[in-house]
Amino acid sequence: MKNQLHRIDLEMFEGPLDLLLFLIKRDELNIYDIPIAQITKNFLEYVDLAKELKLHSAGDFVLMAATLMKIKARMLLPIEANGDDEIEDPRTELMNMLLEYKRYKEATSTFSEMERFERPHYYHIPATWSPQQEDNTAILEDVKLYDIMLTFQYLIKNYEEPATHSVAVEEVSLSEQVGFLNGLLQAKAKLSFAGLLEKFESRLVVVVTFLAILEMLRSRQVQVKQSKLFDDLLISRGSTFGN
């Protein structure tokens, strides 16, 4: 019964800082002068439960428990008075973390209100085949890195390695693949990434080639376009190509 109650509580908290703020409020503690021994004891009860429930964030709770115990230990040590040096309270860092977190937690409730207010409104959105998407080769000018990663994940999932049993060390380097792509782009203005995949025999080569594309993208030797998410990547010469 007691556990049941705790379980509901624990899932309400976003993490160890959230739980600490709750304990401080519940027990009317002074955030400037946190009674570490008391709060550590209460906190640990929750942590045990988090471990028992195998909560996703249990690790974060355990880490905070260790921090609390460290602070507790430091407070037990006799303070060495070193002349005029100001002695820092071992709790200061934790207090600052709690206050900073509290600021954003407050802002979160504002976001939640804004979300609730905007929720019933729907935007007028034109049909997905609007003119800018008709030219299939140059649609999304601004492909985001995240989109490229998703596409790669998607393409390589469909890429099956031929089943072989020979073991050989494959030598393929990033600079080799950069050179390879450079050569291809000299001959052809546009390359299809899916088309390239068909030529390779191992995942390793695919991965290294993908890294080569990212590298060339970074130095603007190539540009990458895509018509929609998960679609083929079209590689063409960039502003510094051939330099």
């Binding site: 976003e14 993490g15 160890p16 800082l17 959230d18 964030s57 690790g59 974060d60 905070m64 973390m97 900073e100 977190y101 954003y104 937690k105 802002a107 979160t108 504002t110 976001f111 939640s112 979300e115």
Partner: peptide, 30 residues
């Protein structure tokens, strides 16, 4: 959005641009 997502969004919107580490050190959770 979940509470966790809203918290993350709040931090990004006030502190952008931010890294994942910046976010996690404020939230105290991954």
């Amino acid at each position: 959005l979940s509470q966790a997502a809203l918290e993350t969004l709040a931090i990004v919107s006030y502190k952008q641009p931010v890294t994942r580490n910046d976010i996690e050190s404020i939230r105290g959770v991954s």
